[in-house]
């Protein structure tokens, strides 16, 4: 199981939770497991074409998955997968 940390903007679609446990060996699988528990999150995060919307950032252990293999980035037992809006800063 990985722990998926949700930003405040997504918590209403996850019953108010700030973190959700979800299984999978890649980020894509973990997100699928997350969407199965909270269907509305799929619509908010997915671009409908197998990818993520362009202003969604996902991190595994603090590292942006675009420095890894994107949605194919490996996730190990107990890893923290963090979802955050991309538009901050600058």
């Amino acid at each position: 199981m990985a722990k998926v940390k949700l930003p405040t903007q997504l918590r209403d679609a996850a019953g108010g939770s700030s973190a959700v446990d979800a299984g999978g060996s890649t980020v894509g699988e973990v997100l699928e497991a997350l969407y199965e528990q909270h269907a509305e999150l799929r619509e908010r995060l997915s671009d409908g074409d197998g990818g993520l919307r362009r202003f969604v950032n996902v991190y595994v252990g603090g590292e942006d998955i675009r420095f890894g293999d994107g949605l194919d980035t490996a996730v190990s037992e107990g890893d923290e997968v963090q979802i955050l809006p991309a538009v901050a800063g600058g």
Binding site: P7, N57, Y59, D64, Q82, L84, P85, A88, G89, G90
Partner: peptide, 25 residues
């Protein structure tokens, strides 16, 4: 980018704080 990620997370948890380039962006 690490600082920014931290502040994005913090801005969600500290609701009385105005992060000028996050929630006030």
């Amino acid at each position: 980018d690490d600082v920014n990620r931290l502040c994005t997370e913090l801005s969600g948890e500290h609701e009385s704080w105005a992060f000028v380039n996050v929630n006030l962006r």
